[in-house]
């Protein structure tokens, strides 16, 4: 090897060029599969574009937006998505916080509880929906369980047939699936509270309840904010359960959430302009939540 006495700075500059080599494939990927499509979606939303049509798309300004905002179908989807979000938010937040605190307080069996509660989140959402669809059968387990609880034998609660019940059913499935997941986030969050703080409070004579309300809860606030935002953003993207239930013959209008509507508008009705507008509006709402999430100090992606 030839000895060269190059100043360390230029050596470092040369080495740092390797940085580009390592990131280049990623830059290419994200420009092609994220950046370009989102710009294209914005472009499509201002054009009259049909799938499989040979005519060149025509610029039509805000007509697609106007059409979407005037359609009762869209507002029905907004209602369906909002109902679903709010309907799952309260039970998921409260239950996962409660179970998280309880699990963190155990010295024994912590791992077992975590695994048991988390296992529904491991099951894929389509499998989950199909198992629950069978339990929601008129002669299925859900009716038998509810009738046993209320002492009303033989009544069909129409889980997948009644307009209100089918919404409740999708929420039951989602809550069952996701509580364990957010519960783990709370367990992790509680685990990050410094032991010294808790020890100090014990020395100061705080009892278990005081420790919970005065120490754990306030210090858990960032995790609570993060979890709240994640519940909202993830539940806005729900698709599988609603799609599967409607394919099995459940009334689709009550559970026609935005994602389902976008899919149907694009593929069944083949109206890409309208579908693009709807997905951009969904994006705008999610962006708002993402911004809130950054404020809450986390990062996230659908799991």
């Amino acid at each position: 090897m030839k000895l060269s006495i190059s100043p360390p700075r230029s050596l470092e500059t040369k080495r740092n060029r390797w940085g580009w080599a390592f990131v280049a494939p990623g830059v290419l990927f994200f420009s092609t599969f994220s950046l370009y499509p989102i710009l294209s979606a914005i472009w499509t939303s201002f054009h009259n574009k049909k799938l499989l049509s040979l005519k060149p798309p025509k610029f039509i300004g805000f007509q697609n937006y106007a059409k979407v905002l005037e359609s009762t179908d869209f507002w029905n989807s907004v209602r369906a998505s909002a109902t679903f979000c709010l309907g799952v938010f309260v039970p998921i937040f409260c239950l996962s916080l409660l179970f998280g605190v309880l699990i963190a307080s155990r010295s024994k069996g912590r791992r077992f509880y975590q695994m048991a509660l988390y296992s529904p989140a491991v099951l894929s959402s389509v499998v989950t929906a199909s198992v629950w669809a069978i339990m929601f059968d008129p002669r299925g387990l859900a009716n038998q369980f509810l009738n046993g609880l209320m002492g009303t034998p033989g009544i069909d609660h129409r889980w997948l047939a009644d307009a209100t019940m089918v919404q409740v059913s999708t929420m039951v499935v989602y809550v069952w699936k996701m509580v364990g997941y957010y519960c783990i986030l709370f367990v992790t969050g509680i685990g990050k509270i410094p032991v010294s703080v808790i020890e100090a409070s014990i020395i100061d004579g705080a009892n278990a309840w005081q420790r919970l309300t005065r120490i754990t809860m306030p210090l858990l606030r960032p995790t609570m904010a993060l979890v709240s935002v994640m519940i909202f953003t993830n539940s806005l993207k729900t698709f599988s359960t609603q799609y599967l239930f409607s394919q099995r013959g459940a009334p689709s209008r009550p559970i026609n959430v935005l994602t389902l509507n976008i899919y149907n508008t694009a593929i069944v009705e083949q109206n890409l302009g309208l579908a693009s507008v709807m997905s951009l509006l969904l994006f705008a709402v999610l962006l708002l939540f993402a911004w809130a999430q950054v404020k809450a100090g986390g990062s996230g992606e659908d799991m």
Binding site: L35, I262, D302
Partner: peptide, 17 residues
């Protein structure tokens, strides 16, 4: 920033491409 773009928002242009 692309982390904030949900798949649902880009799936139609991706599909066309």
């Amino acid at each position: 920033s692309t982390m904030m773009i949900p798949f649902e928002a880009v799936m139609i242009p991706l599909y066309l491409t």
